[in-house]
Nucleic acid binder design. Structure first.
Lengths: 248, 248
DNA sequence: CAAATTATTTCATAATATTGCATAAAATAG
DNA sequence: CTATTTTATGCAATATTATGAAATAATTTG
């Protein structure tokens, strides 16, 4: 195995897991930990990652402040993203909302999937730069630093020009009667615009976000076609099913 | 077996396997490893693959992309960025073109600098996410993966709405009579639009880009106010000074 | 056509680079 | 503070690369 292959593997793993452990890598790659350490060192030298005791973490601390929630909910998000993947097919046009769930989904895109992705998320656009076969359209506008998405009139105007097959919404809060709600007025307006521009709307939400509400309303819950969540809890999801929304 | 046949075989194998090993090739082709090494060397010379210890790996999917260019001429770019910094003051609105020079400049922004930055570069927007006091406006549009910028009509329309104090242009080629030129029509159009939306235009260019030209024209050289370069070579810069352009 | 030139390839050998191991130093957790 | 884990260092084993000489093949030239 070439050294470059190892480096590649490490970077890919870092990309999906948001961290790498030397012991794990030593196992995966079948080389000594010394070699792994030296590999990490050289990657750190080129600024591709940050070496920490016992392993390494990605260089660009993305919004979804990796350092703070290392690994937390990461598995749940991958579960959700895995379910969402099954709805994606070559040739579709997809609107991708910002957020950690959608970001995880994008990271899991198979290399041969050929999509057109419309997004207002800077990290998602950045991520798709690596993807060989997606067409990326970024909506313009003012960039919000905490959520790392563009928003405002420009964003909304641009979204209005598209007609997508599916909109994947990263939702903050979901409630059977309060609907979909968020903590920022500008962002909720953009989300609503995304919903209007897509034939089907799928919300990605970990189970703990269901049944909660925030100050600003995006839309009624009935605007959703499907809710994709990590664990399907009968009790929690029944109200949504009653409204004719699929929950998987 | 002809040398060309061997080279062909190597490239095909590289395509399917994503790597080649010298030992393997030596076996497959029934020639010594020395010969294989020389073959790989010549292929690497023509930029068809990247030679690494023990074999070779393919060129990254988008050749000469932003990612590969980053790091080359890094010192020169920092010199240029350092000079450019002196023109920046709190409260200004700046248009930042894409490119590695402008990216380096953005990375060097002092933490307390309070700017409004309008850019079509995804990595620059991403970088400024870390910056505490800049306002970032990203122009929308289709994202080009090589240069990692948005371009197209949406980008141009959005740029038209702004009036910036300075436009920092990352130029491909500069020539006293041919003007500023680039290798992609869409991108040159966007650059022109940036120039029109700013009061002063400053080009960031390493000295080796001066006196060269590419197929698509951005604008006449006289549209520039200032050229910021790494080494001020009297002979090279004289034609620009004669046209009333400052060179520093 | 044959000799001479040139290019290509192999082999032998020396120089370099990589890797894993042993051990000591340092950092971390309990 | 001590036990444990991780990191750093030197070193030996191995693998890879570079170099020059010799052998071979291809091409040119008279």
């Amino acid at each position: 195995m070439l050294k470059e292959e190892r480096l590649d593997y490490i970077l890919k793993k870092l990309q999906t897991d948001n961290k790498v452990l030397q012991t794990e890598l030593s196992n995966d790659l079948q080389v000594s930990e010394d070699t792994v350490r030296r590999d990490l060192e050289s990657l750190a030298q080129s600024g591709l990652l940050i070496k920490v005791r016992g392993g390494a973490i990605p260089h660009s601390p993305h919004p979804y402040s990796f350092k703070e929630r290392i690994g937390i909910h990461e598995d749940d998000k991958r579960t959700i993203a895995g379910k969402a993947l099954s709805f994606l097919h070559d040739g579709q046009t997809i609107i991708m909302d910002g957020g950690t769930s959608t970001y995880t989904l994008v990271k899991m895109f198979p290399a041969n999937l050929r999509l057109t992705v419309i997004t207002n998320s800077v990290p998602i656009a950045m991520q798709l730069m690596e993807h060989p076969s997606t067409e990326v359209i970024l909506t313009g506008g003012r960039v919000f630093k905490n959520s790392q998405v563009t928003s405002g009139l420009d964003t909304i105007r641009m979204l209005e020009k598209f007609r997508a097959d599916i909109c994947f919404l990263g939702v903050c809060s979901l409630h059977p009667t309060a609907g979909i709600t968020g903590i920022d007025l500008g962002e909720t307006e953009v989300k609503y615009s995304m919903i209007r521009s897509a034939s089907r709307v799928m919300a990605l939400a970990t189970i703990d976000k269901m049944g909660t509400a925030e100050p600003f309303k995006v839309c009624d819950i009935t605007e959703l076609d499907t809710i994709i969540t990590d664990r399907v809890n009968e009790e929690v999801i029944q109200p949504y099913l009653n409204l004719g929304i699929k929950v998987i």
